[in-house]
Amino acid sequence: MTPFSFNRATDQSEALQLAERGGRYLGGGTNLVDLMRETVEHPAALVDVTGLSRDIAETPDGGVMIGAGVTNSALAAHPTIRARYPVLARAILAGASAQIRNMATVGGNLLQRTRCTYFYDVEGSRCNKRRPGEGCDARGGFNRIHAILGASDACVATHPSDMCVALAALDAVVHLSSASGTRTLPLTELHRLPGDQPQIDTVLHPGELITAVELPAASIAAHSTYRKVRDRASYAFALVSVAAAIAVEDGRVSDVRLALGGVAHKPWRASRAEEMLRGKAASLDAFRAAAEAELADAVPLNDNGFKIELAKRTMTAVLAELAGVDA
């Protein structure tokens, strides 16, 4: 680990000032400390922001504001989340281990970096995300866990978060703060596709701090779930995951939210499938057709072609389960 200075921010303005001077925000450390030890990351200064916002509060318009310092465990355990946004509680509980969820924060979870093993192999492998322009050894290597959607020649990595997949489906809004003020972003616009700049994971400006994640009011969210498909029965990253919420009236899909994990460089909101389903009869065929459409542009690598069919099947099954349609 490269030496660094450590400061704990007592309030937001102090955090921003420390970041201005080159500090890197530190949440629970479950990803950043690992990456620093692996020498993937070399921040010269860390700013502990875990103490800044640990509140979960209902907003005036019926949504929920979640402080960026809230731990994953606390969020999943919160009665409002469990009752009104079960997909979010389920997604969090499907991730990592209890110990890690007790440490990891909401803000940190959003900024997790990929689990691509070539990204981690600092000395021995080429990675455009680590050293732009040097090449990507994941192509042609072990890429079973890699992207099938939205990848580029430069990068085929996936975003590893479960929580973000649920947030993407829920139209969550990320609250940001920087020296130049505050702004909000839809979560679906926080993360980038790799393109020819895979070293940049998000659209955050330098020094910009995630202060909160807001869940808008959405009655559909109460009827939602998360399904994660992985190699181990627990404590493994998703090969494919699906966050879904659906409302069916008189046999027709009145509203639907769908997002996929494990398939792309960002949490993948399945807008195309959603559009196809709205107003359609809730049937297995319609669900499958929507899944087919969403994956129509999927491009397999040598090891991960199975993810295309797996994603289709999982989407179809999750929608069928939520809609009460026999599979």
């Binding site: 093993t117 492998s125 042609g140 181990r232 627990s234 404590y235």
Partner: peptide, 25 residues
Amino acid sequence: TQYDERKGRIMNPSLAEYHVPVHMD
């Protein structure tokens, strides 16, 4: 153990990426 035949390098030298059974398995 993922041995990358191009360079003879083990690519999952980690308990996160080399899976052993967990309690749930």
